[in-house]
């Protein structure tokens, strides 16, 4: 069972995404054998009204609820973050929260972020962290978002050890830094492979040095062809156990993810 831990719906202002509705996402999933995807509303990156953004993503996926799991977007720098999060969890049955600190402009190790992470742990929900969405060099001039320093991610992991954290779009060298960091509690941390196609041997280096334990499949569809991350895993001569682990098995090791996917 292939689970995509990195997907979006909604309108992206700089250009029309090739598949921006739920039916389009399902079509991409079907042609690639992807069973389930965790989906957030990309419009939340540029919105102050995240309650509505979350309401919309829950509505979009309602028809496909066994395959598209709605992920909310929360800005912990806004005074209303807790109310939005609690409402999304209770009423919209969100399957987690995705953070975009690069777009919302707050520090990842702020007290509010840690409080949100703890809240999610209490509710047995994952925290998704998008380290970036579009490449800095091609961002719209009015929508610039700088890269997140890896030190901030490390600090978040240290301060929220009981929260299941899914890192979206980590580069291989960033993943290596996390895996090398001493005494970092990584038991509940998953890293998707979306951005691990750079350089050519980035994913291979991680597998050789650290194994596949923390790696999961994520495509960032519909921004990217989901085929790319699949081919990265399948067509590079990796041992079959690693391929299976990344694509089909590792998500099962995270009870928070497994109970959402299997319920």
């Amino acid at each position: 069972m292939i689970v995509d831990l990195h997907a979006y719906l909604g309108n992206w202002l700089p250009y029309q995404l090739a598949a921006s509705d739920a039916a389009g996402l399902i079509r991409l999933m079907d042609r690639n054998g992807i069973d389930v995807a965790f989906v957030s509303n990309v419009e939340g990156l540029f919105s102050f009204d995240l309650a509505t953004a979350n309401e919309r993503v829950a509505h979009w996926v309602a028809e496909y609820r066994t395959r598209l799991l709605p992920v909310g977007t929360i800005n912990p720098a806004l005074r209303t973050w807790r109310a939005d999060a609690l409402d999304g969890i209770a009423r919209l049955r969100l399957a987690g929260i995705r953070l975009h600190p690069a777009y919302h402009g707050y520090a990842l190790d702020s007290d509010q972020v840690i409080a949100l992470a703890n809240l999610l742990a209490e509710h047995r929900l994952p925290l998704f962290l998008a380290t970036f969405v579009d490449e800095e060099r091609f961002q719209h001039p009015a929508m610039r978002a700088p890269a997140i320093p890896i030190a901030r991610i490390i600090e978040l992991i240290r301060r929220a050890p009981h929260t299941t954290i899914v890192l979206n779009n980590l580069f291989p060298e960033e993943a290596e830094l996390l895996l090398l960091e001493s005494a970092l509690p990584l038991e509940n941390v998953a890293m998707d492979i979306t951005a691990m196609d750079k350089p050519f041997n980035g994913l291979q280096r991680i597998l050789t040095r650290f194994g596949s334990a923390h790696l999961v499949y994520g495509s960032q569809m519909p921004f990217l062809y989901p085929e790319a991350a699949l081919a990265l895993v399948r067509v590079n001569g990796f041992v079959e156990t690693d391929v299976q682990a990344i694509l089909e098995n590792n998500w099962r090791k995270y009870p928070t993810l497994a109970q959402l996917i299997e319920r």
Binding site: K198, F200, L203, Y225, A228, A231, L232, V235
Partner: peptide
């Protein structure tokens, strides 16, 4: 084209597969 070594060839070829 792939732009290897910067990018992974299989992932770049998958763009065409997915088109």
């Amino acid at each position: 084209g792939t732009d290897a070594f910067i990018r992974n060839p299989a992932a770049m070829l998958a763009k065409v597969a997915g088109a």
